[in-house]
Design a protein around this nucleic acid. Sequence first.
DNA 1: TTTTGTGAACTAGTTCACAGCT
DNA 2: AGCTGTGAACTAGTTCACAAAA
Lengths: 222, 222
Amino acid sequence: MNYVNKGRLAHDQVSELTTNRLSVYLRCLNQVIDGAGVTTVSSQLLADQFGLNAAQIRKDLAYFGEFGVRGVGYYVKDLRGNLRQILGLDRHLRVAIMGAGNLGLALADYPGFRQEGFEIGGLFDVANEKIGQESRGGVLTYDVKELKRLARRERFDIAMIAVPASRAQPVVDLVVSVGIKAILNFSPGVLKVPNNVKLKGVDLTVSLESLSFFLAQDNAGG
Amino acid sequence: MNYVNKGRLAHDQVSELTTNRLSVYLRCLNQVIDGAGVTTVSSQLLADQFGLNAAQIRKDLAYFGEFGVRGVGYYVKDLRGNLRQILGLDRHLRVAIMGAGNLGLALADYPGFRQEGFEIGGLFDVANEKIGQESRGGVLTYDVKELKRLARRERFDIAMIAVPASRAQPVVDLVVSVGIKAILNFSPGVLKVPNNVKLKGVDLTVSLESLSFFLAQDNAGG
DNA sequence: TTTTGTGAACTAGTTCACAGCT
DNA sequence: AGCTGTGAACTAGTTCACAAAA
């Protein structure tokens, strides 16, 4: 541990809203770095530039340590390093994608994942015609029966679920059984996992229907 | 309007957390209908079966009308109809997908969208080799320059943004300029839209990094 | 009796505003 | 002077608990 822990993390539970924002802050810093050669940045500047709240940025960061310098702001490179460490991006996380359909293949080649240091270790499917095939980006599809064997060798940290809804629960059970502790689920519907496994859902139908609601109200309400 | 409005919708703003849950409730009801021939369901039963809170279900629904019967529960088919109407799914919404890369093509063929009555009207891209091509599911890719002309004819309600991050803002500006009022953004980063346009983001990097955070804490904290 | 609909109580999350450091 | 870090105030969201209705 390089950042000041303050002994909180073992006690309180950090809100998911906060962890999501940490990821956003990191992206903002990367953009700042890509831009002109600024070495420091204030919470106010970040807030203005990216539509955030300055106090919230400070509070989120202060939770993990005192990264800033009063009167100056945050040293961009230092803060970036600290955020990467807090988010666990200094490790090399390996991802298994369950389901080599359209969505699974798209996720396998999604450039944003590799950029932040995630490695897609393989696709897993039941369909014989898919097994042995590679995605455009070169990710190989394995028989789902091989997951157990490969999980040992490849040490998968995260699984993404991109199988049809009806197959999602058994696939999640399998993923949990091989010791994977973090799951990103793209299939619609509720899934059960043990408490020591973190499940995060990306629900496309809910997102789209929420937009539909907005349009319906908009047209009705005037 | 078939459901009791109570005149609230024009005044208060419904929380996005609530609208997301409405979509979840609808999916739960669909599953209940697929199962045994039950005609009524109580908030408690839904809560138990899908890991929700009964009071919250009742409160969310009560906001839009009195759909339940005391001592009985909710008539499943009626409630389903009311939810579909509230969410605007009784209309026929048309979707344009900006970007015919891996992700755009996967979205175009995603079965969950069609299932709830959304129609994918076309993919739009700048790459000449993609224009005129069809997705596996038969969605045609048009030149992005055609958006304006086609938007008039096809009356797109919703746009999904699946272009690289660097192209996202100009593409959103274009989408807004042709009169589309609801946008689902899959590209990472902050986008600006006028207030009368609803922008919703699905941020894959943030989701994955949030899982990474969990793993980092888990291993560090014991 | 059962279960809704809802005020009240509670919990979580955000923003303000300023002391304190550089 | 400028900006962080943070208690206090505020706002939003959830859950409780019960009166009212079937």
